[in-house]
Nucleic acid binder design. Structure first.
Length: 471
DNA sequence: ATTAGGG
DNA sequence: CCCTAAT
């Protein structure tokens, strides 16, 4: 099992003091051997000296592993000095994927004149062995230790080759849980308390919640992810969005789930996979094969930067929606109306096999929520601030407009309401339109969409949206 | 087979 | 995203 921690902190004076304190506290979460950290450069001030004694608590991470749902908190562009976004991204990866390091930091380091009073820390830790001793010391596992191997990104100074793999002993202190929690709030992460099996007496069979047969989706993913078991070379670094002037706290830990339920489901799928394929019949098989083939092509994958890792470490079979996809969805809804998810899927998302009609509906639901249709404005603003990838406002506007036209829960069960208002003409939800009218509406809406799209195109760089392939 | 709705 | 009930 391998896991990695990427830790980059860039602190500028423009921070409010309180934030600086918090940053420092987080910095303390990392313990680091002296030799590697030797400040090569005057710009590393006392902020960056990490305390060796400081401990990290395994359970903290453990909790975060299962709870942090966000896979990608790509750096959002910000205005220099005014960026108030923080990212906290904890992931523990089964296989060490991508980490990069000091991309944003290297640059500013060399021209330290601009950021002369900033303290910068960037680093990568990669662990090769992570002993898991969860069986006994579940309660007091404060002493658990991880052995990490550094791949040398902890130096900001490019001139200093720190490739010599060196070992870290990292243990975590439970006290820092609170601080992590604070950062979680800053980052807007959702985080549920784990109601895990604290009862030690429970037999394993009882702890498993339920046996469910793996979904089609799961099967597809599983068998697809199987063949590539490769770990990229240790030196591999992925480009991040390099917003050098943005004050960003960026912590990245990739995670694999270790909850008992997960384990069981894995085992199950392994057993059931063949059986299911036989049982499901041939038509399904064909469909599956089609889907396999379409994956490697990647033409449909919106995020080119992350597509490699996407399929494997996405925890819950999630695929991030790209902005073009969102636009397409909006367009589709404006054309076909809300609720005709299969149509939209068929006509607009035919090439992306991973977006099911249900996904489209869910996305629409989320869009509604994000643009806070039928919601207070306060919540809307709060939402906006908390949002990881804030929607461009024109999108929000469009969604709202659309929501007025077609209310989401497509009214059909509300017969009572209609009866009560029988006399007065109620706004028809989606009345049967004549064909000509419909066509007219469609051309109009596509025109609208095109305009909309042109405008949106200029906003791709904002908000961390990745420009995806438009199919 | 599709959709709505809840988790 | 996933699952289930309802249509």
């Amino acid at each position: 099992m391998r896991s990695c921690i990427y830790f980059g902190v860039q602190v500028d004076e423009s921070y409010v003091p309180a934030l600086q304190d918090e940053v420092m506290e987080v910095e303390h979460l990392l313990a680091e051997p002296r030799n590697n950290l030797a400040p090569q450069d005057g710009s590393l001030d006392s902020h960056t000296t990490l305390n060796r004694k400081d401990d990290l608590e395994l359970e903290v991470l453990d909790g975060l592993l299962d709870d942090v749902e966000i896979d990608d908190l790509e750096g959002a562009d910000g205005f220099p000095g005014a960026c108030e976004e923080y990212f906290l991204d904890f992931e523990f990866a089964d296989k060490f994927e991508e980490v990069l390091g000091s991309g944003p930091f290297e640059g500013s380091e060399s021209h330290s004149s601009g950021l002369s009073r900033s303290s910068i820390v960037g680093g990568v830790l990669e662990s090769t062995e992570v002993p898991i001793a969860q069986s006994e010391s579940k309660n007091d596992s404060l002493d658990e230790t991880l052995t990490y191997e550094s791949h040398g990104a902890f130096s900001n100074n490019p001139s200093q080759p720190s490739q010599g793999n060196c070992r870290y002993n990292i243990s975590l202190d439970i006290q820092h849980l609170q601080e992590l929690d604070n950062y979680r709030h800053l980052a807007g992460l959702t985080y549920k308390k784990e109601k895990g099996p604290t009862e030690k007496g429970q037999p394993a069979a009882l702890r498993e919640k339920r046996f469910r047969k793996p979904t089609q989706r799961y099967i597809e993913e599983f068998s697809n992810a199987r063949p590539k078991e490769k770990v990229p070379p240790a030196g591999t670094k992925t480009k991040h969005s390099s917003d050098s002037s943005c004050n960003v706290l960026h912590i990245r830990i990739k995670s694999l789930k270790r909850s008992p339920s997960e384990k069981s489901s894995n085992e199950n799928s392994e057993v059931m996979l063949p059986e299911l394929q036989v049982r499901k019949g041939h038509q399904k098989k064909e469909k599956l094969q089609f889907e396999y083939e379409s994956f490697p092509s990647e033409s449909e994958d919106g995020c080119s930067t992350t597509k490699r890792s996407r399929r494997k470490d996405r925890r819950k079979h999630q695929k991030m929606w790209t902005l073009p996809e969102v636009l397409k969805l909006v367009e589709g809804i404006s054309e076909y109306g809300v609720g005709r998810w299969t149509d939209i899927k068929k006509f607009l998302f035919s090439s992306s096999s991973y977006r099911t009609p249900i996904d489209l509906r869910d996305k629409w639901r989320n869009l509604l929520r994000a643009s806070s249709v039928q919601k207070n404005k306060k919540e809307a603003e709060q939402n906006d601030e908390l949002a990881l990838r804030p929607l461009p406002f024109n999108v929000v506007h469009r969604v709202r407009e659309l929501a007025k036209i077609h209310p989401y829960p497509r009214q059909r069960g509300s017969k009572k309401l209609r009866v009560s208002q029988a006399g007065t003409s109620v706004v028809a939800d989606s009345p049967p339109v004549s064909l000509s009218k419909r066509n007219c509406a469609r051309t109009w809406s596509s025109f609208q969409t095109n305009v909309f799209r042109v405008v949106s195109d200029s906003m791709f760089q904002m908000n961390g949206w990745v420009k995806g392939v438009d199919n």
